[in-house]
């Protein structure tokens, strides 16, 4: 699957069907600090992502003074 890591401005390929939470563990991303999106749909961490899917890991943390 293609994983777009928005805040690191990079894309990585992760092979094999797996759950969202496993993708995040593999990439060392804290699930509390991101949302995972497929198309326009938010995914919970138990959802399986297929090999031909593209998902976006979007950061949710803003800094400075909101």
């Amino acid at each position: 699957m293609k994983v777009v890591i928005r805040h690191q401005r990079r894309e990585v390929e992760v092979s094999g069907r797996r759950r969202v939470r496993d993708v995040l563990v593999e990439l060392g991303v804290n699930p509390e600090s991101v949302l995972v999106i497929r198309g326009s749909q938010l995914l919970t961490h138990d959802v399986h992502v297929a090999d031909d899917d593209t998902i976006e890991i979007r950061p949710v943390v803003s800094g400075g003074t909101p």
């Binding site: 600090s33 991101v34 949302l35 938010l42 949710v60 943390v61 803003s62």
Partner: peptide, 12 residues
């Protein structure tokens, strides 16, 4: 913060 982002995405 994660919920605010989820709201924005769901609301388009």
């Amino acid at each position: 913060e994660r919920e605010a982002a989820a709201y924005a995405i769901i609301r388009g």
